[in-house]
Simulated assay, not measured.
Amino acid sequence: MPENESEPWEYWLYIPNDLRAVTVCRRTLRLILTLHGLIGLVDTAELLATELVANAVRHAKGPAALRVSWSMGVLRIGAWDADPEPPEPPGELERIVQAEEGRGLALVRACSSLWGWQPLARGGRRGKYVWCELTSSPAA
């Protein structure tokens, strides 16, 4: 558990439209969560961030950003990209488990407590923000 669970925090990591940025985001997220005492959420959070950021980089032109925030026992992970079009609705995980592509939002839906998207402009560019939430569980 975090040392002071009641104190909210937030990080933004702006990235270029480059698939190598997915690895940078994943490693940065691991460091952030470890430093905040949320090591129990790292593996699932990395999976979710990887899917969100990969979608942002793969399907949109221009820059993207990873946002990670903590408030009242909820970790929110999101990716902003410069494409204002809504994401494709996630398919059923059972149907796409063998697919090479198209699993991202199905994994996000299956592994998070809640997910969604909204239009969001950053730096004068229209775009969207796709996010998901993980809730912390009490220490055993």
Rank of each mutant, 00 (worst) to 15 (best):
I96W: 12
M72W: 11
Q98D: 13
M1I: 08
L41M: 10
A21P: 08
V42Q: 08
L75D: 05
P2E: 10
S6R: 15
T34G: 13
Q98N: 10
P89W: 09
R58A: 11
I32N: 08
V130Q: 06
L48W: 05
D81F: 04
L134E: 00
A99V: 02
P63Q: 15
S137W: 04
L31Y: 13
S112M: 04
T44K: 14
A54T: 15
W70E: 05
L41S: 03
P87Y: 00
E101Q: 10
E101F: 10
A49Q: 09
W12E: 12
A45C: 02
N17V: 01
D83S: 08
V42A: 00
R30A: 15
A140Y: 10
L107S: 09
R67Y: 04
V97P: 09
G102L: 06
V108G: 08
W80F: 03
M1R: 07
A121M: 10
H36M: 03
T50G: 02
T44Y: 13
E7T: 12
W70H: 04
I77L: 07
A56W: 05
E100Y: 14
E51S: 03
G127T: 08
G62F: 02
R122M: 14
A140R: 15
A60S: 06
Q118L: 14
D81P: 06
P138D: 08
E94V: 06
Y14A: 15
T135R: 00
S6M: 07
L38F: 04
G102C: 08
E51P: 01
G102E: 08
C132T: 08
G124I: 01
P63H: 13
L33M: 04
E5D: 14
M1G: 12
S136Q: 09
G91D: 12
T50K: 01
V57Q: 11
L33A: 01
T23F: 12
I15S: 06
Y14P: 11
H36G: 04
T44W: 06
E133C: 07
D18H: 01
A54F: 12
I39H: 14
E10N: 10
Q98G: 09
T34A: 15
E7A: 08
A64W: 02
A139W: 11
E92S: 13
L66M: 14
L35T: 13
H36V: 00
C132V: 04
P84M: 10
W117I: 01
R76W: 01
E7I: 07
A64M: 05
G40F: 05
S6W: 10
G123Q: 14
Y14F: 13
L114R: 14
R27E: 11
Y14S: 12
V53M: 01
I15D: 03
H36E: 06
G102F: 04
M72A: 12
R103D: 12
G62D: 04
V97T: 07
E5R: 07
A99S: 13
T135F: 00
E3L: 14
L35A: 14
V57L: 09
G91Y: 13
L33T: 00
P89S: 04
L107I: 15
P87G: 07
P89F: 08
A64P: 05
L114F: 09
S113K: 13
Y14G: 15
L35K: 14
W115E: 02
R109P: 09
G127N: 03
L13W: 05
S136M: 02
C132Q: 03
